[in-house]
C-alpha cells in the first residue's frame, strides 16, 4: 500500500502561537488512520493545516503525490479531500437536501450526483426521512451524519473526520462508527480520524498516531499502539 497523504516537517501556528512542530505523518491509501491525543494537543489544528484553513503553515504536505501546502482551501477540497470539520459546519438555514447539494457543488456529472444522493441516503436513512427539514433543527447526531454525508457527496478520495463522536450519545456514536467502517470497507475510502475517544478510534482504525502538545510521539499499526502499556494507561483507561 502507498501513502495517499504525506506530511513532512510540518509547523503550524495561529498568529504567534505555535501549535504544531515538526509533524511527520502519512496515511495509507484505503485505510483508516486514527490521530489520538488530549484536548489541545493539536489534532484539530493538524486537520486545518491540511486544508490550509485558519492556520499559518510551514512544511510539506503532499496529496496523491502533489504538493498541496499553500493552496487555497477550496482548491484543496476540489482535489478530493473531504473535511468533516470540528463543529460539523452545518448550513443551518438550508434544508438537509440543500446541504447535500452544496457538497456536490463542484461536480458536473448530474447522473453521478443523483446516484450519490441515493448512496448517502442508504448509509444514513434518517437523512432521507428529513431531507426537507431545515438543517439547524436536526439533532446533534443527525447533524454529524449530515456533515459526513455532505463530505461524501464530494466523492472525496480522502475523508478527514474531526471528532465525529463529540457530544453525542454512545448509541449514536456506535451507529456513526459502524457506518464509517462500512464506507471504508465498501468504497476503500481513505480516512484520517481525529478522536479523543481512543478506544473507539483504535477499534476502527488500522493505523494510529499519538500527538502530545503539538508533536507526534508515537505512530504505527493500531493493534501495536493499543497494546502499548503507556498508551493503555493514559488513553484507554486500563
Amino acid at each position: 500500500m502507498s501513502a495517499i497523504l504525506a506530511i513532512a516537517k510540518l509547523d503550524a501556528a495561529y498568529g504567534e502561537t505555535k501549535v504544531l512542530s515538526q509533524v511527520d505523518l502519512s496515511i495509507e491509501e484505503g485505510g483508516i488512520t486514527a490521530l489520538l491525543g488530549a484536548n489541545g494537543a493539536g489534532k484539530t489544528t493538524l486537520l486545518r493545516a491540511i486544508c490550509n484553513m485558519m492556520v499559518k503553515v510551514r512544511g510539506e504536505i503532499s496529496f496523491m503525490g502533489t504538493r498541496i501546502d499553500g493552496r487555497a482551501t477550496e482548491s484543496i477540497a476540489r482535489l478530493g479531500i473531504g473535511h468533516v470539520p470540528d463543529g460539523r459546519g452545518t448550513f443551518s438555514h438550508l434544508s438537509v437536501e440543500e446541504n447535500l447539494r452544496l457538497g456536490a457543488y463542484t461536480r458536473r456529472d448530474r447522473k453521478g450526483v443523483a446516484d450519490d444522493f441515493e448512496r448517502v441516503y442508504t448509509y444514513f436513512p434518517r437523512l432521507r426521512e428529513r431531507h426537507l427539514q431545515q438543517a439547524g433543527t436536526l439533532s446533534g447526531g443527525e447533524q454529524q451524519m449530515l456533515a459526513i454525508a455532505r463530505a461524501l457527496m464530494m466523492r472525496p478520495k480522502l475523508l478527514l473526520l474531526d471528532e465525529p463522536s463529540f457530544g453525542l450519545a454512545p448509541v449514536i456514536v456506535q451507529e456513526i462508527f459502524r457506518i464509517l467502517g462500512a464506507i471504508n470497507r465498501d468504497e476503500k475510502m481513505s480516512m484520517l480520524l481525529v478522536e479523543q475517544n481512543a478506544n473507539l478510534a483504535l477499534d476502527l482504525a488500522d493505523h494510529a498516531y499519538l500527538i502530545e502538545t503539538g508533536e507526534i510521539v508515537m505512530g504505527g499499526e493500531a493493534a501495536v499502539i493499543s497494546g502499548n502499556p503507556s498508551v493503555r494507561r493514559a488513553y484507554l483507561g486500563y
Partner: peptide, 21 residues
C-alpha cells in the same frame, strides 16, 4: 445561487466543499 447562500451563511464550511467564498 445555492452556493452563494451557503457562502453567506457559513464561509468556512463552504470552502471545505470547494466553494470560492
Amino acid at each position: 445561487g445555492l452556493a452563494m447562500r451557503g457562502a453567506a451563511q457559513n464561509p468556512a464550511a463552504s470552502r471545505l466543499v470547494g466553494i470560492s467564498v
